[in-house]
Amino acid sequence: MSRLTDANLAIARDIIARYPRKKSALIPLLHLTQEQNGYVTDDAMRHLAELLDITPAEVIGTATFYEMFKFEEVGTYVINICQTMSCALLGAGALMHHAEEKLGIKAGSTTADGMFTIEAAECQAACTEAPTMQVNYRHQYRVTTEDFDQMIDDLRSGALSGDIPPHGTLGRNRQNIPADKFVGAPDPDDVTEGPAWIPVKVDNS
């Protein structure tokens, strides 16, 4: 049931064709399947292994290295509260404490209604806007406890569903390479010549 849908399979084939070797598409496809199902399921990993001519063990081997891939259900909204230095200097600890109190759960867990997961996160490349958090990876800057409460209310009421898609959706638009402009991604073993615009061997040194 959690194999890629036909529509997503078409996207997957497009993505695979962009890489000289299939396995390079693994992380993008893990994102695709997480977007479809909310987390990475066992069936999905078997499907990706088929698509990429690798074993399911290789898929899970790679997938488990990366923090963004979840292997069990998480909340519709995953709230990552940055705890690294720049944010810690400006109240990240108090914000986390408040978030735990407000939602009644400890960091690393999910509310009983399946709406929210809170996680202690690391630097989100927004350090000048501390303290920061991300909701399904959408940055929120200079978050006060009032902002946090407002955010939770808005997410619950659906007021933000246009801005913040459910867990799994990263960029809402994917790159689309038109077939007539695509140069192609041959396996390096099949390439013998230098690029056309380098007439003879060029000395860069």
Binding site: R18, I27, H31, M68, F182, V183, P195, A196, W197
Partner: peptide, 12 residues
């Protein structure tokens, strides 16, 4: 001169 630029997402 021909070049494809492929956007690739990391995963944390």
């Amino acid at each position: 001169f021909s070049l494809d630029i492929v956007l690739h997402w990391g995963a944390g």
